[in-house]
Design a protein around this nucleic acid. Structure first.
Lengths: 294, 294
DNA sequence: CTCTTTTATGCTCATACTGAGTATAAGAAC
DNA sequence: GTTCTTATACTCAGTATGAGCATAAAAGAG
């Protein structure tokens, strides 16, 4: 039952998915012109999370507001080798970033179909949907996965099923393989690992978390307008929201308070600035005012 | 940035938290008279999850309906040693169990304060609350963690904060150290590892998951009465619910359908038997009819 | 057979929240 | 001023929620 393993040679890699909020979309911090994710070895001095937190802040210059473990992947070791690679991935949220040797990539460049906010991106999605539908047709196993993942047959669109959709599109050959694959070594003999799976897990977790926790505020400046808050939620969920109802939702819950200042930088009537009230956030629900899709 | 680690000697342990539903509470499958959790080495033949799924089914005789990765822990290596132990924990749900060399333990024997269902357990909790309150008083850092975790100052009780509460009670010395600690080796020089942290993570995840996914049904028989369903939700959440409103919630969502049979085993009027309708479960919310906790 | 016990199931009602709109207010640019 | 643009306010019908009460259907006692 509890046989000891044979202590194979083992590498443990800590991978950080560092997300910030851009104007149009959540953005990912990458290295080497978008080829790599920040990743470092396991240091055996701290707890995993605290150690990586400090490491990532030092190496990126970001002040990380929230960090959580995402998932642990165990790559297949190469045949004739005992070498095992374990990758423990973390989701980190930060407010601003000065890309100093880093580059920022919109998450939707990796998953364009996850953006359902505008008629343009939405119609792009619908085209993809016809392809995946015809791929799944006639195969019951494919259908039972595809129908809920893509909201077919009148099922609602579930923005959290990012990984399901990515895996299905991958199997269907509908994902352009235009992305960073193997990290942290260019050794071609190394099993290529698809970083977008980690990334899909991150977006999925992020979308799940914004539903009932106040982590959006970790991505916003300390003072923000209600429209900024709404745009942040829309950017993350990939869905458009109803403005008056969103304001009502936020204000009713007393999640924010006025700073007294106004934002005069935008055209039109200047919006009031608000700040987050952590003491009111024991129950937080900001995902309520979504508009229907197609 | 991407320095390679120095390949320390490394053991990877896969730990399974296997939960089934008892009459009174969710139960944990344990080995060695409750001293150990089922855990096995990393086999490098399958994907982590699929491999462990099969392994756990073979070694416990349970048919596991749902399995998900919980958390990866990295124990501190011993000084003067390069040996690193990595523990990847999984949550597994199963319907029935014939304990064949295994024993089943109510989760609330590990966390009695998480059971708020009856006046008796509730008053036990209140006693503990006075202790933790006086421990936290006068220390701002302790207070900011204790107040939301235990729902003080009029804050609502959050049944998902299992790990926060456990850690606070541990720090306060209020947890009787009457539990399995180090697994899978009795070598006393090995850093003791508190299994209840994994267990608290599991209960926390489970309580979070039952809120918006239909996994309760993985723990119930295929045909069940509405009261059985309600009791299962109460057992998991540790909170009593309002019977008429719970039925309304379930039936309105059309999550279940009648089998046509009735359950004559209990006294009183026989209850109708229902079965789960997976096709209706794209949005599932069964946590709605909770009664207030003073 | 009738009464009591026990559980299942059904119903009410005031209140709160939600989806989908429409209307007004306040600055900036010309 | 007039117009453009965004912020903010209000309406209204439909639906869900919290709390409690009422009835139905079986089993067992007398």
């Amino acid at each position: 039952m509890t046989t000891m393993p044979d202590n194979p040679l083992c590498t443990i890699d800590l991978v950080t998915i560092l997300i910030t909020m851009g104007e149009e979309a959540p953005t990912l911090l990458t290295l080497n012109q978008g080829q790599e994710l920040p990743s470092g070895p396991l240091t055996n001095r701290h707890s995993l999370q605290k150690g990586l937190h400090r490491w990532a802040e030092q190496h990126t210059g970001c002040s990380i507001g929230h960090m959580e473990q995402l998932y642990t992947f165990a790559d297949q070791p190469l045949p004739n080798t005992q070498h095992q690679l374990i990758r423990i991935s973390y989701l980190a949220l930060a407010r601003i970033t000065n890309p100093d040797g880093f580059s920022l990539q919109s998450l939707y460049t990796y998953f364009p179909w996850e953006d359902r906010r505008t008629p343009a991106t939405n119609s792009q999605f619908k085209e993809l949907r016809t392809h995946i539908t015809s791929w799944a047709r006639h195969d019951p196993e494919r259908l039972t996965r595809t129908i809920p993942a893509f909201g077919l047959n009148g099922l609602p669109w579930d923005d959290e099923k990012v990984l399901d959709r990515y895996e299905l599109l991958w199997e269907a050959g509908l994902v352009a393989k235009s992305l960073p694959t193997s990290t942290h070594t260019s050794d071609p003999s190394h099993t290529p690992f698809d970083n977008r799976r980690i990334l899909a897990t991150a977006l999925s977790r992020l979308r799940a978390k914004i539903r009932y926790t106040p982590i959006v505020f970790e991505l916003l400046p300390h003072a923000f307008t209600l429209l900024q808050l709404q745009k942040a939620m829309e950017n993350l969920s990939g869905r458009p929201m109803h403005k008056p109802n969103f304001r009502r939702l936020v204000l009713h819950q007393k999640l924010v308070e006025e700073t007294g200042e106004r934002d005069a930088s935008a055209p039109g009537r200047p919006a009031k600035l608000y700040r987050f009230r952590p003491e009111a956030a024991t129950s937080c629900y900001l995902s309520g005012a979504m508009l229907p899709l197609d």
